[in-house]
């Protein structure tokens, strides 16, 4: 069966929600078990006392990327059928900057805040309330930001194409960079004073 299974029509739609819950549960379990339910553990990446976010995030992205590319090569899944988030250059950068500020202040991102709520973190519940209000405010004030939202549209481009190298070469460089970061993170962790949390 060539994936993706649901868009190709291999799985009846009734199963959609069941699959969503199961995949979500895998997602939530792994995040929580890796320590993403603690905002102070997450923030360790930015102060050098615990690089768990960096490690988990890049390992996950590379595992999925390498897996998808081999699936594509072996004919198990069609890489070109995968949804590639369209690139709106300005919107992505401005949005990323705003999220970065929110990250440094709140200590969670939406996914990790859900995990933290599940194990009873009150700050995460407050964070998610803020998230809800932020999204509501954005939707209401959309006419003011519509220009930024729509600006810099480059379509669903791949980073390797915009750099002019093949997917394989880019993935290889990404792997090397990530391994370098993991190594560097270990060195930094040794020097930085441990923080109790």
């Amino acid at each position: 069966m060539t994936g993706p299974l649901i868009p190709m029509g291999y799985i009846p739609e009734a199963w959609n929600n069941v699959i969503a819950v199961l995949l979500g549960a895998g997602f939530g379990f792994t995040l929580e078990a890796s320590g993403f339910s603690s905002s102070r553990k997450i923030m360790g990446t930015f102060y050098g006392y615990d690089f768990v976010v960096l490690r988990v995030f890049f390992t996950a992205a590379i595992t999925a990327l390498v897996g998808l590319m081999y699936f594509d090569y072996l004919g198990w899944a069609d890489f070109s059928m995968m949804y590639v988030l369209p690139t709106y250059l300005t919107a992505a950068i401005v949005g990323g900057i705003i999220m970065g500020m929110g990250f440094a202040m709140g200590g969670y991102c939406p996914g990790t805040s859900f995990c933290a709520i599940a194990i009873g973190k009150i700050d995460a519940l407050v964070f998610t309330t803020g998230l809800l209000i932020g999204i509501f405010a954005f939707s209401e004030a959309f006419p003011l930001v519509e220009k930024i939202y729509e600006s810099g549209n480059l379509g669903s481009i791949k980073v390797s194409d915009s750099l002019g190298i093949s997917d394989g070469v880019f993935t290889f460089i990404l792997i090397i960079v990530a391994l370098g970061m993991f190594f560097g993170a270990t060195l930094v962790e040794r020097k930085v004073k441990k923080v109790e949390y």
Partner: peptide, 26 residues
């Protein structure tokens, strides 16, 4: 701070069409 961070994350995630999971990781 958690509340303010949440609001900022909400606005930013809509602008960038996704958050750390939806846009960055995926």
């Amino acid at each position: 701070f958690a509340f303010s961070g949440g609001i900022l994350f909400g606005i930013g995630s809509q602008l960038a069409r996704g958050c750390t999971s939806g846009a960055a990781l995926s």
